[in-house]
C-alpha cells in the first residue's frame, strides 16, 4: 500500500533532484529543452563567482540570525505560557497565529509596515522620539537583512514555542517543587532543572529550524526581492535569479546541488543523531 506514495515521490521528487545533478553539468538556457554537456564548467565558474560566496555568507547570516532569535523568543514564551493563569488559552492561540498565517499575505503587510514614508514602524519610533529621520528599513543593505530576519523571527518562533511547551508539560511538577523547597531561585531552577529537561527537544528543534530556514525563499523574495544590491540574496534566491532571471539553467542547477548537499549533510546528522522515525516528535 506504500507503492502509490513511493511512485509519486519517485517521479515528482527523486527524478527532479537527479535531473538537477545532470543539468548542473550542462549548458542550457530556459527556452531550450535539451542542454549541451560542459563537464565541471558550471562548478568552476561558481567557485570563482564572488556573488556565489556573497550569497553563501548571507545564507549563513540569515539562518544563524533567525534560528537564534526564534529559539530565544520561543523558549521564553514557552516558559511564560507553561505557568497556568487565567487567559492563558487565548494568549497561546494568539502566539500560534503568526505561524499558521498564509506567509505571502503577512509578509506583504510587513513590507507595508517597513515602508519609509507611510510605514507604521517609522511613525511609532518618531513619535516616541527614538529617531528623528525616517529609517530606510528595506533600502539600506545592512538594515534590509536585519528587517527580514526580524520578520521571520516573528513568523517562526511559535514552532519553537509549541515544541518546548509540549516537552515542559510532560515534566513532572514535583521536580520544580523539589527545587523550590531546596531554596533555588528562578534562574537556578531554569539553569539546573528546566534546561537539562528540555535540552533534547531543543536540539531537535534547532536542527529542524536551521534546515528549513536555510532554504526559505518567499520570506525574502516578497519583501526585498534579494536587494538592495544583492544584500539579501540567499542561495535560494540566487538559484531563482539564475534560472528565471538570467535563464542559465545549468548554473542554477549547480547552485541547487550546493543547496542539496547542505540539506543532505544537515538531514543526515539529524536522522542519525535523533532517530526521528523511532519517536513521534
Amino acid at each position: 500500500m506504500i507503492v502509490p506514495a513511493l511512485t509519486l515521490i519517485a517521479i515528482l521528487m527523486f527524478y527532479p533532484v537527479i535531473q538537477s545533478f545532470v543539468m548542473s553539468f550542462t549548458k542550457q538556457m530556459l527556452y531550450e529543452l535539451e542542454g549541451k554537456w560542459c563537464g565541471l564548467e558550471n562548478y568552476i565558474k561558481l567557485l570563482k563567482d564572488p556573488s556565489f560566496w556573497q550569497s553563501f555568507k548571507i545564507t549563513l547570516i540569515w539562518t544563524f540570525g533567525t534560528v537564534v532569535l526564534q529559539t530565544i523568543l520561543g523558549v521564553g514564551s514557552a516558559l511564560l505560557l507553561y505557568k497556568s493563569f487565567s487567559g492563558r488559552g487565548i494568549v497561546r492561540a494568539f502566539t500560534l497565529l503568526p505561524f499558521f498565517t498564509p506567509g505571502v499575505s503577512i509578509y506583504l503587510v510587513w513590507r507595508w509596515m517597513y515602508n519609509d514614508i507611510s510605514g507604521i514602524f517609522n511613525h511609532i519610533l518618531m513619535t516616541l522620539g527614538i529617531i528623528k529621520q525616517p529609517i530606510l528599513w528595506l533600502a539600506t543593505p545592512r538594515l534590509a537583512i536585519i528587517s527580514v530576519i526580524l520578520m521571520a523571527t516573528w513568523r517562526y518562533f511559535p514552532f519553537v514555542m509549541i515544541n518546548v511547551l509540549a516537552r515542559l508539560e510532560s515534566i513532572s511538577k514535583s521536580l520544580f517543587d523539589a527545587a523550590k523547597v531546596d531554596g533555588a531561585n528562578s534562574w537556578q531552577i531554569f539553569w539546573n532543572v528546566t534546561l537539562p529537561q528540555i535540552r533534547g527537544v531543543l536540539l531537535i528543534v534547532v536542527f529542524l529550524r536551521a534546515i528549513w530556514m536555510s532554504q526559505k525563499f518567499e520570506e525574502i523574495f516578497v519583501v526585498t526581492g534579494g536587494g538592495p544590491a544583492g544584500s539579501t540574496t540567499t542561495l535560494a534566491l540566487l538559484s531563482y535569479e539564475q534560472a528565471f532571471g538570467a535563464m542559465r539553467l545549468g548554473y542554477a542547477s549547480a547552485v541547487n546541488v550546493v543547496i542539496f548537499i547542505i540539506l543532505i549533510i544537515m538531514a543526515t546528522i539529524y536522522i542519525t543523531t535523533f532517530k526521528p522515525t523511532k519517536q513521534t516528535v
Partner: peptide, 17 residues
C-alpha cells in the same frame, strides 16, 4: 527515513526540474 528526507526537501530545489 526516505519519507522524512523528502519532507525536508525545499521547493526551490525541485522548482526548476
Amino acid at each position: 527515513n526516505t519519507v522524512l528526507l523528502t519532507y525536508m526537501f525545499p521547493p526551490i530545489l525541485m522548482a526548476l526540474p
